[in-house]
């Protein structure tokens, strides 16, 4: 990756632009000024850090500052413009609601994430993995299933949700089924591709060692497939949560994140909706982050992992 291009405009031009922006904001509405000030403040701090440090911590601190800046703008803006809570609650109000209804959130978390998403994720990815190993043995199946799998992976599979809810009932089983269907094809396509990724030279070497099919599979092809498998797992991790939540829009027992979101929107209790979204975002990021971490441990040898220090 090449470094970002630095433009060579004199510094005063930037400040003149900022001053102009402030003047325009003040002319439009005085309340815009503090909001804009927070934005500029955060940006300047970030720019200073970005210039000064090639240090590693810059890569972590800058996005954090950016996020905090956005949250502050939201909070201050919401208060200054007196936006109704029905439309957009302030971050502090969301945090308060989060704390007050943590037992509801926990029940929903267990119902949707643990029972629905996680069990479906394990079943779907496991089944796809096994089928991929089978497909890999038969070139005919490879030629036939891969295009079909690629096609299906691009389809709006969430649409299967109402059908699966009808088949498996309202409880978590139907949610898990939706997740299975959603994660199955991306995982299948990635694993099959991964199993083909070891090159002919390496396979020939295994043959000169008189390695059988299983030995070649376990010692060469599966390890070589790991980067692809993890790519599939990452895609599947985000799909799993989406599937579990959306499936609840089509009917669910009176708990679960999707159920809570759709009913709370109806009651205009948007702070609870946002609290659920905070949970979903945290879980999603943690899920993804966990898989990325595992990937770093398992595929430490891969160039994409060795590159970063």
């Amino acid at each position: 990756m090449t470094a970002a291009v630095q433009t060579k405009r004199p510094a005063w031009m930037g400040w003149a632009l900022v001053a102009l922006a402030f003047a325009m904001a003040a002319a439009l509405d005085l309340r815009l000024v503090p909001v804009l000030a927070i934005w500029v403040g955060g940006w300047v701090v970030n720019a200073l850090i970005a210039q000064r440090s090639a240090a590693r911590w810059g890569g972590y601190i800058i996005p954090v500052i950016f996020g905090v800046t956005l949250l502050l703008m939201w909070e201050v803006g919401e208060r200054l413009f007196e936006i109704s809570d029905v439309l957009l609650p302030a971050p502090s109000e969301i945090a308060a609601r989060f704390w007050l209804s943590r037992d509801i959130l926990w029940v929903d978390f267990v119902q949707t994430v643990i029972k629905g998403a996680l069990s479906g994720f394990v079943m779907g990815c496991g089944a796809a993995f096994l089928l991929a190993v089978v497909i890999d043995r038969f070139p005919f199946l490879q030629l036939g299933l891969l295009p079909v799998g690629n096609f299906v992976a691009a389809l709006p599979i969430v649409g299967m949700a109402p059908i699966l809810v009808m088949w498996f009932g309202f409880d978590w089983q139907s949610k898990a089924a939706v997740v299975v269907v959603m994660v199955f094809f991306p995982m299948l396509v990635n694993t099959v591709q991964g199993l083909q990724s070891s090159d002919a030279m390496q396979r020939d070497l295994m043959r000169t060692y008189a390695a059988g099919y299983w030995q070649t599979l376990l010692k060469l092809r599966l390890p070589a497939a790991m980067p692809f498998i993890f790519n599939g797992l990452k895609i599947a991790s985000t799909l799993a949560l989406i599937g579990a939540i959306v499936a609840e829009f089509f009917g669910s027992p009176i708990k679960g994140m999707g159920f809570r979101i759709s009913t709370s929107v109806g009651q205009l209790a948007l702070d609870l909706v946002w609290a659920e979204i905070v949970v979903a975002a945290t879980v999603g990021s943690a899920f993804y982050g966990g898989i990325a971490l595992l990937e770093r441990v398992v595929t430490f040898w891969h160039p994409s992992q060795r590159g970063r220090t």
């Binding site: 470094a3 970002a4 630095q6 940006w43 970030n46 720019a47 970005a50 810059g58 890569g59 800058i62 996005p63 500052i65 950016f66 996020g67 969430v158 991790s237 985000t238 949560l241 989406i242 939540i245 959306v246 829009f249 994140m257 999707g258 979101i261 759709s262 929107v265 948007l270 909706v273 946002w274 659920e276 979204i277 979903a280 975002a281 999603g284 990021s285 899920f287 993804y288 982050g289």
Partner: peptide
């Protein structure tokens, strides 16, 4: 460069949250 370092991580993070959950709201 500043935008690269501050926005890019959030662009990636935005996709790990199940955005479809936001749809009704």
């Amino acid at each position: 460069r500043v935008m690269d370092m501050s926005v890019m991580p959030w662009v990636i993070a935005s996709q790990t949250i199940p955005i479809l959950a936001l749809a009704p709201m």
